[in-house]
Amino acid sequence: MNYIWIGLIIISLIFGVLNGNLEEMLEVMLSAPKDTLELLLKVGGMIIFYSGIFKIAVDSGVIKIFSKLFSKVIKKIFSNIPSDHIAIDYISANIVSNLLGLGIASAPMAIKAYEEMKKINNNKDTISSSMIIFLVINVASFTLFPVTVISIREVYLAKINIQIIPLLIIVTFINTLLSVFFTKIVLRKKNDE
């Protein structure tokens, strides 16, 4: 992360200076804290709200129902987590809400899942293999209702719109499968060494 971050900044700065838009860059650099606050007000506000709603679901045991839906598959994928651990419930709840296209509402569940995975990890500062797998599943964004792009395309009066939903579902599904498979292989190699 460190090198990527430094790299992004250095390349942008050098190119910006060569291009002569120094002032604009200074401006956006100084406005970054404000942008971040605005982003967090928007996204963070929703996360805080759904954290509250989600806590009700946890306390009432609703998320146990979610985890029963996929428990077999998820336990197989996350073989490092004890099978009756609460992290499994959080992971299932996150995946279900992603499938339904609930967007930001699923973020608190992901955070909870990562927190629980951190608790069972031996080294608190370092990522565990189950966290990487969960991240990959989230990046691959398997969904049944790709609502954002569909509504945007509707605004643009697209003729090909509903037809792409099944394709998107298939592609995100295959992407999730292949990526988890790849990640498993990479992580296994690391463990062998």
């Binding site: 992360m1 990527i4 992901a110 955070i111 990562y114 927190e115 951190k118 608190k124 500062d125 370092t126 990522i127 966290m131 990487i132 991240l135 990959v136 989230n138 990046v139 691959a140 964004s141 790709p146 954002t148 792009v149 998107l168 592609v171 995100t172 992407n175 990526s179 790849f182 990640t183 990479v186 992580l187 690391k190």
Partner: peptide, 29 residues
């Protein structure tokens, strides 16, 4: 649509729970 922003997710989630060493997460993402 078919993938999300890996860098954002790594900094967002692992920053949130305090993981410093993100190991192979970036490559896999």
């Amino acid at each position: 649509t078919v993938s999300d922003s890996t860098f954002y997710m790594i900094s967002f989630y692992f920053g949130c729970i305090g993981i410093k060493n993100t190991g192979k997460a970036l490559v896999c993402g």
